[in-house]
Design a protein around this nucleic acid. Sequence first.
DNA 1: ACCTGAACACCGTTCAAGT
DNA 2: ACCTGAACACCGTTCAAGT
Lengths: 225, 225
Amino acid sequence: MVAGSARPGPARTRSEAEILAAGLRLLDSGGSAALSVRSVAAAVGVAPNAIYTYFPTKAALVKALLDDLLGGLVGDGPADGRPWREEVGGLVTALREVLLAHPGAVPLLLVSAFDGPNALAAGERLLAALERSGLSPADAARASYLLQTYVLGSVALDVAELDPTQLRPDDDARTAARRSALTAVPAEHYPRTAAAIDVVAAYSGAEQFRWGLERVLDAVAPRTS
Amino acid sequence: MVAGSARPGPARTRSEAEILAAGLRLLDSGGSAALSVRSVAAAVGVAPNAIYTYFPTKAALVKALLDDLLGGLVGDGPADGRPWREEVGGLVTALREVLLAHPGAVPLLLVSAFDGPNALAAGERLLAALERSGLSPADAARASYLLQTYVLGSVALDVAELDPTQLRPDDDARTAARRSALTAVPAEHYPRTAAAIDVVAAYSGAEQFRWGLERVLDAVAPRTS
DNA sequence: ACCTGAACACCGTTCAAGT
DNA sequence: ACCTGAACACCGTTCAAGT
């Protein structure tokens, strides 16, 4: 009984969840560069290499952290009864919001795959809602691809124009960042670009996103004519 | 005459262009992680800190390298006489292609701003073509935003699903990568996702991109009705 | 089994010194 | 002005040793 499946040796002094929570705190307070194996280890009070008892590599830790972030996207119940367009828009908007609430996570997400259990569950829910709209599975798959590119692309644009020291900015801070980009563009050489930044800056990021989302939803909606 | 604007001291032994070319070679052969100040210095045969004579920081070097990559997007002449939709599609497709030809550059581009002279020139050309379609400057600005998110998002999805060791993959390699992602998704838990990967894998990345591009162009085209 | 101390092979950047 | 050697404060990861 002592041998077999029971593990000998001392119990672990930390938990995966504790380590991921510390990692998220570092990401939120210092951006993506502040998340290192060594900084996480210091935050939970162990030696750097002790982290490798919980996660085999830094990449595995990052992947777990990112998927945790997506945990709130899908509730427990089955597909709700909302109209498909509302549910699809809600899912996509919620994804954007959770990412912008943790901008330090965005550079990590953009370069890593998107295939943890919570990401897959959200994608499954998205496909189900799209099929409820009347799209064939094949068309729903392509619509899902287009919606994913939209969220990732718009979040990438939003975060790239932020001052790296500006963490957890609200919508106003992002608008200000866009305005400051304007002054950096020499209007005499790039008149349309300067004017375009001015136009876009008049809208908050959320309005801008919603505008594009409606266009994308129109583009993928089943042809009724 | 000796004093004044003439610079004393030895001439520089390298050039910015030489350093950027070495950087791109490293990026293409080893991915984004292979581009370091020290590896570039070794490639051009100087001490690591000599790079700081040419670029003030690594970020400045990366920015210059990325903008160089966009140098071929815009020709010399004024806007050509092609229909607006063709020119817009051509610009956007060319951007996608230059990025996928150098996948190591994608992680760098996704997290940095997009505001070098060549990026601005391409953006200016894009806005001009959109205005030729009949869109107001304000609508052209929003259309440009949507098109940018599409390229960035689709390139991010394309590169994220690649094996990091797989450099400069052709279209077939990317299709194979997508197929291998399929086997990783447990179909019993995520039936729609597994089926969707199968659908998407039946198309090459270029076909998939063109499908979405046509939808996005439809979505932003001026309403003629 | 888990944790530690020490080490390895890196990294970006700075500084003082040589020419 | 440009380049070098040396150093500083990091990084992810591995290994041998302790419990």
